[in-house]
Design a protein around this nucleic acid. Structure first.
Lengths: 183, 183
DNA sequence: TTATACATGTAACAGGTTACATGATTTG
DNA sequence: CAAATCATGTAACCTGTTACATGTATAA
């Protein structure tokens, strides 16, 4: 139950059409809540049916025609309710950790190359976040929204930092391990 | 497509029944790949149909009767293939980060209490992991499997450490922010 | 005029969640 | 024998993924 709230947040930041939302999800909000255009269109339909958003009056709705949405008061209220409500953290679910556990039983063949590949991917993501930080959050002037956005970005930076460090360690550990089936 | 491989790994470590698997998923493997008993039974059925596992000969299959499974050679081969195959990391998806982003638009009311609650939960999880480390990985003697298991546990410890630090920071930041709608 | 990009969708499926159903075994 | 617990399952639903369908505007 988070995608509708991600969309409400994005639409409050700026009224948009489905495709514009999809593009914005590829940056910014998508860094911690990704969505495809199919999901977004499906959800926009639901949100409109529930009275949380509406199409901007100016535009005529037609297939293939751009259709922009804005958030209604009920939508803002629902987002505020959801934001402040208590929610349990989801347990960790990570494929690479599972693969290492499996490797302890069936052998480590092939996994080291993918660990290195992931390390490179996380390094790039970290660099991208750091670039955003340099660009959007220069020292000094900060607004309340800016501090919150920076806090979220900081989580991304810290998480990518963790992964690069841990993957580096994992690659080192695997190097000194005997190859093949360890069972 | 990871649950079947999580189950194959668990069954290779020790042949088990559905409920025993469920219990073991609540510890150990479930720390990074959780599953409910409904998922597990459903998946055991599929794995058996595909010829990856079989019921231990000793037991007769009947509703309400314990039914233990073991992994067949084809299952071990599939697990080894999957473990060594290249897989893309999944993008981050975290509700709390989304909520902070939403709070920048609709206000921070209510979120600080839940940040504190999460901080406490992550502190407890971290303590639990550290206890496991003390118990299962004393300095000195280490086998290849042990090193891999320890590596996975280390990821859990590092992640929980990250969350406790970041949440501490988040609570501090919120404290100096004006209440209510920041838009 | 046709190819390309823009824009909005539909359909089928896979995986995870929640609620419920049913039989077997133990123990008070 | 009644209640609790162990154990296996079914069904409905929600979310996310993948593949495909369709119409509009623009530029070569």
């Amino acid at each position: 139950m988070s995608l509708p709230h991600a969309i409400l947040t994005a639409l409050l930041e700026k009224p948009s059409s489905g495709l514009e939302l999809t593009r914005r999800f590829d940056k910014s909000i998508g860094y911690f809540w990704s969505a495809t255009h199919q999901q977004i269109y499906r959800e926009l339909g639901k949100l409109e049916a529930e009275g949380y958003i509406r199409t901007l009056p100016a535009e005529q709705p037609a297939r293939g025609q751009k259709k922009s949405y804005e958030v209604l008061p009920a939508g803002r209220a629902e987002l505020a309710r959801w934001t402040g409500a208590s929610q349990d953290p989801k347990p960790l679910r990570d494929v690479m950790l599972l693969r290492l556990r499996a490797a302890a039983v069936v052998g480590t063949a092939g996994i080291e190359a993918d660990l290195r590949r992931h390390l490179e991917l996380h390094r790039r993501q970290l660099a991208e976040y750091q670039e955003i930080e340099r660009r959007d959050f220069p020292p000094g002037k900060d607004t309340p929204q800016g501090r919150l956005h920076h806090l979220v970005l900081q989580a991304g930076i810290d998480l990518e930092t963790f992964w690069t460090q841990w993957l580096t360690r994992a690659v080192d550990e695997l190097a000194v391990l005997p190859e093949g089936d360890t069972a």
